[in-house]
Amino acid sequence: MTKDLKQKYDFEKGIPIMPANASAKYNKTSSWRLWKPIIDHSKCIKCKTCFAYCPHGAISWINGKPKIDYTFCKGCLICAEVCPVKCIGKEKEGN
């Protein structure tokens, strides 16, 4: 029976676990996007609202400024909706 199972026993490697280190970076969700949010930094008041509401961890706060990671942004446009000064515009993907 073991012969048919073309595997060797891998000890702990054979256990369905993985390190928690945000390795989802292999899983790029940018292709889901229909609209691309774009921050107009000249109007941005750095209130951190978009950062608070982004559901997908696609907005990071770097040096006191929001930065959209377009590898992961799924284009839900919640950031554009919640921005109190409406400084986040959108652009159709593929144009």
Binding site: L5, Q7, K8, Y9, D10, G14, I15, P16
Partner: peptide
């Protein structure tokens, strides 16, 4: 693969 490993562990 994981089920196979489970089986091998049992063996």
């Amino acid at each position: 693969y994981f089920r196979g490993q489970h089986h091998l562990a049992n063996l």
